[in-house]
Amino acid sequence: MLLWKNRSVRFLVYLLILLFALETTDIIPVKKQGYNRLKSYNRHYTLKANQSDHYDIVAFGDSSVSTDISPEAMVASLPGLRPYNFAFPGLSMNKTMLMATEDRLDVTSPSKAILLGFSTHTLTDAEQVNNKYYYPFKNVPFTELLTIRLTGYDLLNPTSFDYLYWLWTQKSNPTKKKKEAKEQIIPIIHDDTGWFELESDVVKTEFSREDYVNKYKDIALGISPTVVSELLEQVRIWHQKGIRVFGFRVPLAPALIDISDEVDQFNQNQFVTDFMQSGGTWIPINSKGYKTVDGFHLSGREARRLSKDIAEVIKSKL
């Protein structure tokens, strides 16, 4: 009773009770609206770039792999194995990144494998983009990395005025609500497996050459023979080391596949032949079988389906 007279104690008790109530119910619409999107994004890729754990299967590629490969879904078909998504947005498959990928592999695992998800962009001469998409995450100051690691909880997610206003205006306009809800792309970040899931019902199919060029305008376009030859050489080395290497073309909107092949001057048949001759195993993917949310990335549901399909192929080969 004496303790209850202490205002600070009362404050703390009220606060804890209400926080518990708000966190365990949906009274405040706080989850999944990506309010702290940039912060979560930076946190995710910083943790990934500074990952020190080792895995049986490591997937690598650009943002398409980051969103399309769900280690959670792969586990269902590959019980007992630990897959990890080591993909970063915008990166090419240059030597630095291939070595970083290998570093994440558990060399003692009898089923060690690397899964490479190709887009034409990953084969362009984009070494310079590492500075933008990898090194800033890899080279964060120690204090920042420690902060990120110490504060790695998923509680007390904030809501926002924008979101509440959106909810308020939708009440009076259900048609608009339905339309806008459909257009939402909500990232759900899985720091433990490296998957950057996109929750959405949006399906975009129509794209122009300008759409593609605009997306990659800040980097050199065109397949780099150096990147390709270094990649094939690395596949050969991995094969000799006993590491299974799987490759697949990431699903894009069908229109974008033609455009990217044309803009980047990519001959997929030739590449697949070279890849297999180097010791890699090619997993054919039917792009039309998967629906993307923005032409480049799959929704969470589609990503799970793709990952499961890929995992089945890997299972049959391991």
Partner: peptide, 17 residues
């Protein structure tokens, strides 16, 4: 104490970047 808890909760759930 209770009013202060409300302020604290508003701060927590409306914090931005």
């Amino acid at each position: 104490p209770f009013a202060l808890v409300v302020l604290a909760l508003v701060t927590i759930y409306f914090r931005g970047t």
